[in-house]
């Protein structure tokens, strides 16, 4: 699986996320409170809503439309109306850039 250069580390505030589109796919990249970076699919598994406008609270992302909640480290759906986990992708930081393996 190729590593893709997604963004600069300082593009994402701590405890926040940004949207990253690549080819015909869309992702969400998170900056956790302990300084690590994570990547999941960009769309909520409940309905076709992008998580980019959602709220990051510690290690969870809450969907902006129906408040479905996921652990963005594992993709686990934590709160209805989401019942299906998010796909997650490996990340690494090199030279101030966040790379995701997709």
């Amino acid at each position: 699986m190729p590593w893709i250069d997604a963004c600069a580390t300082n593009d994402i505030d701590e405890e926040d996320l940004i949207r990253f589109d690549y080819e015909d796919r869309t992702f969400a990249i998170y900056h956790s409170p302990d300084g690590a970076y994570f990547c999941t699919d960009g769309l909520c598994t409940h309905e076709h809503v992008h998580l980019e406008d959602g709220l990051v609270m510690e290690y969870e992302i809450e969907c902006p439309k129906h408040n479905a909640t996921f652990d963005y480290r594992t993709g686990e759906a934590k709160r209805a109306p989401a019942c299906v986990n998010l796909n997650t992708y490996r990340t690494k930081v090199e030279g101030g850039r966040v790379l995701i393996e997709v």
Binding site: H46, E47, K65, H66, A80, P81
Partner: peptide, 13 residues
């Protein structure tokens, strides 16, 4: 509480 959580999600969609 289960039915209406889903019903209200639909109301917002």
């Amino acid at each position: 509480p289960v039915s209406w959580r889903w019903s209200h999600a639909r109301h917002h969609t």
